[in-house]
C-alpha cells in the first residue's frame, strides 16, 4: 500500500469535474496589466465585447440591462476595447484600481 499526502492527491485517471461556470484551477486575472473600463452611458448593448472575449469575461446582466466585467479571469488582452462600437470601453492601468486583486500563491 502507498500513502499519498492529502495535498498531492489526484483523482483517478485525473478525471476531474468539468468547470460549469468558472475554472478555479486556472485563474488568469493576474495576467492583466491594463483593464477595460466601461462607460455605461455610451454602451448600446451591441454585445460585441461578449462575442469577442476569448475568455467569456463579459456577461449580460439581464435584470440591469448592462454588460458586466469579470476581473478574476480577464487577461487584459483588450480585444473588447478594440471591438467596442460606441467607444464605451477604454483601457486603464491596473495599479490605478484597488479592486481586481487575485494574488495567487503560485502562477499555475
Amino acid at each position: 500500500m502507498f500513502i499519498i499526502p492529502k495535498e498531492k492527491e489526484v483523482p483517478l485517471g485525473c478525471i476531474t469535474p468539468a468547470p460549469v461556470t468558472e475554472q478555479t484551477m486556472m485563474i488568469t486575472g493576474n495576467w492583466r496589466e491594463y483593464r477595460p473600463v466601461i462607460d455605461q452611458e455610451k454602451c448600446n448593448l451591441c454585445m460585441n465585447c461578449i462575442v469577442y472575449c476569448p475568455d467569456a469575461c463579459w456577461q449580460l446582466n439581464e435584470a440591469e440591462d448592462e454588460v458586466v466585467w469579470n476581473a478574476k479571469y480577464c487577461k487584459g488582452c483588450l480585444i473588447c476595447v478594440n471591438e467596442c462600437t460606441t467607444e464605451a470601453l477604454s483601457k486603464a492601468y491596473e495599479l490605478d484600481f484597488e479592486d481586481g486583486v487575485v494574488r495567487l500563491e503560485k502562477p499555475f
Binding site: E9, C14, I15, P17, A18
Partner: peptide, 15 residues
Amino acid sequence: PVSHGPQIRPDQGTI
C-alpha cells in the same frame, strides 16, 4: 460534465 486528460503539473505526474 467532467474533464478527461487535462494538463497536469510535474508534481502530479508521480501520483
